[in-house]
Computed example of a mutant assay.
Amino acid sequence: MQKTMLILALAVVFGGLSAGAMAQDVTINGKGVSLDANKTPVNTAKNAEAAAQIPQGYRFAQPGKLTVAVAALNSPPLTVFADDNKTLLGSEVDIARLVADSLGLELNVVPTSWEDWPLGVASGKYDAAISNITVTKARKEKFDFATYRKDSLGFYVKDTSAIKSLEKAEDIAGLRIIVGSGTNQEAILLAWDKANQAKGLKPFTPVYAKDDAAQTLALQSGRADAYFGPNVIGAWKAALTGKTRLVGSVDGGWPKAAHIAVTLKKGSGLAQPVQTALNGVIKNGDYDKVLNRWGEGVERIPSSEINPPGLGD
């Protein structure tokens, strides 16, 4: 498929991106992605088996609704604000809708910060968090998980960078790398850095930027050498702007594979019905509709698992 040529104003490239600002089509992983078309929800039928598995007496954060925390990072294709700059769109919201529909509940999406979801889920403020959360050994001590996507991380650099490859620990020595605080990608870089310093190599410097605009500015201005994060986000930005390129990818559970999962309060009893709901939409094809329309088909899984091995296991 021929790569789409896109021209964006500088303000869009360095600022927050909304669905209105990104109405153009892009090509991600060989798939054409249309933001205008993706504003239309993908719904699915109620899954009687999944709904029957909801524990009797379970108290939802809001009666009759599945309240889901989604990090409002404005990072397409995972999340992107609609034209009103309030409503969240993206693959994470679409997955949340499929789960809610399957359980016979109304979806209540709550835009939140990455730092807020753990306490919110643990306290019952949110029934679930769907925010590109990787299953890890440490997180399984506090939460239950039902997987819905493979976790793949990518290193992206400015298109004019001299860096050709970042795929192993030695490659990051001495570099300044944009990474999210408290994420599994940060844990990977810290592990690599520890090994590097034991060999006498230069330490890397983490660059923490909370939003897309700050990350883009840091990379394009030269304050950072590379970005390390969800590959689908990096691929989207590279296709959209042409200002960055992929120089390496790593499994999210390095050195093992890892998965992204719906995150639930430990022992709440929701893991089983959510897994059943996800397996239902995987079987009926609605899951593939969501992933493919956001260019994430390469990260599909054949079935959902509850609390599988993760980073640190």
Rank of each mutant, 00 (worst) to 15 (best):
N184I: 07
L153M: 13
V135G: 05
G310P: 06
L270K: 02
G57A: 02
K194L: 11
P309Y: 06
E141P: 03
V110S: 02
V135Y: 06
G267P: 09
A213C: 04
V110F: 03
N74G: 13
V207S: 12
K210T: 10
S304G: 02
E92R: 07
T244N: 13
A198W: 07
L219S: 08
N184E: 09
D101A: 05
T40K: 11
S113P: 01
G16S: 14
P203N: 13
G267Q: 06
D225A: 06
R139N: 05
A69V: 05
W236F: 15
V109P: 05
V247G: 11
V281P: 00
K65I: 03
M1A: 15
K137A: 14
L240R: 14
D25R: 10
W114K: 06
A11P: 03
A72S: 11
E49Y: 08
I282T: 00
A50N: 00
F60Y: 03
Q2R: 14
T205I: 13
A48W: 00
F228Y: 12
N292W: 01
T160V: 11
A138H: 02
A100L: 05
K140H: 06
E305Y: 05
Y58Q: 00
E106G: 12
S102I: 02
E115W: 08
W117A: 08
W236H: 13
A213R: 04
S152K: 07
M22W: 14
D288A: 08
D84M: 10
A128L: 13
G285K: 02
S123P: 08
S304K: 03
T134D: 12
A9L: 15
T244H: 09
A224S: 13
D212E: 14
A61F: 00
G252T: 12
F155C: 06
A218C: 04
A71V: 15
M5K: 14
Q272I: 04
G295K: 01
